[in-house]
Each structure stands twice: as structure tokens, then as C-alpha cells.
Simulated scan of single mutants.
Amino acid sequence: MHYRFITIEGNIGAGKTTLAHLLARHYSARLVLEEFADNPFLPKFYENPAQYAFPLELFFMAERYKQLKELLSRDLFSNLTISDYLFTKCLLFAKVTLSDEEFRLYQKLFDIIQPQLISPDLLVYLHAPVSKLQENIRKRNRSYEQHIPNEYLYQLQETYTQYIRQHNLKTLFIDVSKADFLGNERHLKTVLDALDKEYGEGQHYLTLPD
């Protein structure tokens, strides 16, 4: 294993947490999961985005910072760490959900906090079409997610991919449009084999077997 800190990212419903659990189990790694369920503004946001977007994004940023900062204080590199979110997702979601004025203020706060955190050695980005994301969202059946508009998911997808390419992040893009990491051993093995390789800067692409 060439990496000490791997982050799994992707749109809502892409399967980040499922894959993070499986990889952490395989590598006996420390697992860091986003504590989204503790955000009291999340159900309210989906009902009234304009009113609750700013407190929602502030709460997420504070919680993610606290969680990752605590990791750093416990020697992040003592063993492999796998996270199911990138701290920069704060900024990416805020760019989609906030008004221009709110986003400028939010970015100022983000720019103060972000340099205090360590970036992952490798970003694994799970890419799926919006139809697949909606299918996964329906299956996991969180009540407040059941009416997420397709347009919101499209915007998030575009924001993620633009950011990754503009910043030339070391990223393994995985097409998960037909992924079944729990039911198809070949899919998980393909990812494990890919993680045995050392990648240079930029984007690298992986297609799962049929």
C-alpha cells in the first residue's frame, strides 16, 4: 500500500460509505465516516433550501473540521486511514447551495480553516449517472432525501469534476454505474488491485468488469 490517507468521494448516493467500510475492513484501516445524521438542518434544507442552506453548510464545515482535526492529534499516519468525505466538499456543496453573497462569506471562513488540515494521498471518486444515484437514494430510503431534484445532483456532479480537474488532484475515477461492491466480489477486487498501484498527479480511470 503506497498511501496512508485515502478519501472516497462522489455525489449523493454514489456508494462512498459502503466502499469505505469494505476497504477499511480489508486493510484493517482506521475508518472516518461523515456524521451527516447529526446535522439538524439537513431535513429542513431539503424542505426549504433557500432558508436553511447557510446554517446547513456552516454546521457541516464545523463538524468535518472537528472530526479531521481530532484525527491529526492522534497521529494520522500511524496506520492507513480511509475517509468517506473530502473536507473540500464543504466548499463544493456551498457553491451549489448558497447565494453569491453567502458563498463569498463562507469561502473566507473555509480559507481560514482548510490549511490546518492534511489532504489525502489519493482521492477515489465514484462516478455514476444521476439515474443511478436516484435509484440508490430510493433504496436507502432516507425520508428527507426522497425528493432531491435531478438538477441538484447534476450541479454537484459538475462542481466535483471541475474542481478535481482544475486542481489536478491525484484521483482514481471509478465508473460505478453498474457497481455492486457488496454482491460482486470481482468489483471489490478490481478496486483493491487498483489501489496496489502508485499513481502520479492527475486523474486516472477505472472501469469495473461486467
Rank of each mutant, 00 (worst) to 15 (best):
Y3H: 08
I8A: 05
N11C: 07
I12V: 11
L19P: 05
A20D: 01
A20Q: 00
H21F: 03
A24P: 07
R25I: 00
R25Q: 08
A29V: 10
E35H: 11
F36E: 04
F36N: 13
P43Q: 06
F45L: 09
E47L: 03
N48Q: 13
L58W: 07
F60C: 05
M61R: 04
A62T: 09
R64E: 08
K66M: 03
Q67C: 01
E70F: 07
S73F: 06
R74K: 04
F77N: 12
N79M: 07
S83M: 12
S83T: 13
F87G: 05
T88F: 03
C90F: 11
L91F: 03
K95P: 01
V96T: 14
S99I: 09
S99L: 11
E101H: 10
R104M: 09
Y106G: 09
K108D: 12
L109E: 04
L109S: 12
D111G: 02
Q114T: 02
P115R: 15
I118N: 11
S119T: 13
D121I: 07
L123C: 10
S131A: 15
K132G: 07
K132D: 06
N136E: 10
N136F: 03
K139A: 15
R140D: 11
N141Q: 10
N141K: 06
I148E: 06
P149V: 14
N150Y: 10
E151H: 11
L153S: 14
Y154M: 15
E158Y: 09
Y160Q: 04
I164N: 10
H167Y: 15
F173H: 14
V176E: 14
D180S: 15
E185K: 15
H187S: 12
K197T: 07
Q203I: 03
H204V: 00
Y205R: 05
D210V: 05
